[in-house]
Design a binder for these strands. Structure first.
Lengths: 158, 158
DNA sequence: ATTGAAAGAGTCTCAGT
DNA sequence: ACTGAGACTCTTTCAAT
C-alpha cells in the first residue's frame, strides 16, 4: 500500500511546527530545532517532493467572517449505490464544506457552514431535500467548537 | 454582537485565493486582481489587525503521513452538565482533533484521526470508555472523504 | 546530510499622487 | 486609498565539509 516513509524526528518536528505556524523563517525554525536554515529548507523540499507537504494556506477566523452556524448532517440514502450521484449534487451547494462516505448510522456525513439559521434552513429544506436519492437527514447544530487542532505527529519516530 | 465588517470585493477575493494557496506573492496576486502588490499588502495587514486573518499553516497530506482512519464519534452524556469535564478529558487524547458541543441526536461530536483500526479500537475502548460522564458512543468510520474545502466567500459583497 | 554565504525573490515602508 | 521604488528580510542555490 503506502510506501515506507523513512521520516526522522526532525521531519516530524518541522511538520508539527509549521502546521501550527508557517510564518516562521527557516533560520528561526532551525535555531529552535538546532540545525541550520539550509537544513530546514532541504527537508521541506524533500517533504514537498514526497507529496506530504502540499503548500501553505491562509488561516481565517470563519466566525468573524460571519459563518456562525456550523452544522453536521447525517444522511440516510435510499440505496447506498446512489452515493456518487448524491455526492455530486451536494458538492454544488457552496455551504457544504466537507463530505464523507461513512459506515455506521448514516451513509454519508456532511458539514455545512452558514451565516445564520435562515440560510441553514434554506440549505436543508430547499437544496438538500430536492436531491434525488436522499431518504432522510438528521441535523446536529454545533453550539460550541471546543477544539479544532492538527494531528499530533511530533512524537512519531518513523 | 459581531461588529460590522465593511469588507469589499477585493478583501474577499484575497481571502478566497490565499485560503487555497498562500504561497503566491503579493505582486502576482495583485496582477490577478488588477491592483498593485502594495495594495494586497495593506489589505492583508488590515485583515490581520481585524483578527480575520490568523496567519498561515502548512498544508499536509495526513493520509500519506499514515493517518488513514478518520472516524466521527457521537457521544451521549449521562447529564449535559458534564460537558466541560468530558471535553477536558477528551482533549487529552492526542487522536482527538475536533470536538463540538451539539444539539440533535448527540450531546457531543468528536473527530479522531488514527493510523490503523487497532489504534481506533484502543482510543474507543481503552481511552474514551474510561471517561466519567459518557453514557455511550456511536462511531462513524469514514470510508472516503469526497470533499474537504474552504468556505466560499468570494461572491460575498459586504 | 549539513553548513554558511552569495544571489535571487519577496515583504514592508513611505513619499507622491 | 493606491502606487512604485528603495530598504530590508527571507528563500534558494551551491561549493565545501
Amino acid at each position: 500500500m503506502a510506501g515506507k516513509l523513512n521520516l526522522d524526528k526532525l521531519d516530524y518536528q518541522i511538520i508539527q511546527h509549521m502546521m501550527e505556524d508557517a510564518e516562521i523563517s527557516y533560520a528561526d525554525l532551525g535555531k529552535k530545532l538546532f540545525v541550520s536554515g539550509g537544513t530546514i529548507h532541504v527537508r521541506i523540499k524533500k517533504l514537498q517532493e514526497m507529496g506530504i507537504v502540499k503548500g501553505t494556506r491562509l488561516a481565517v477566523d470563519t466566525h468573524k467572517l460571519g459563518y456562525t452556524v456550523i452544522a453536521f448532517i447525517g444522511i440516510y440514502l435510499e440505496k447506498s449505490s446512489l452515493y456518487d450521484s448524491v455526492a455530486k449534487d451536494l458538492m454544488k451547494i457552496p455551504e457544504v464544506v466537507r463530505l464523507n462516505y461513512t459506515t455506521g448510522n448514516y451513509s454519508m456525513f456532511v458539514e455545512i457552514a452558514c451565516k445564520d439559521i435562515n440560510q441553514l434552513r434554506f440549505v436543508l429544506h430547499d437544496q438538500m431535500q430536492k436531491i434525488k436519492g436522499i431518504e432522510r437527514t438528521e441535523t446536529l447544530i454545533s453550539l460550541e467548537e471546543s477544539l479544532n487542532r492538527n494531528i499530533q505527529v511530533a512524537t512519531t519516530e518513523g
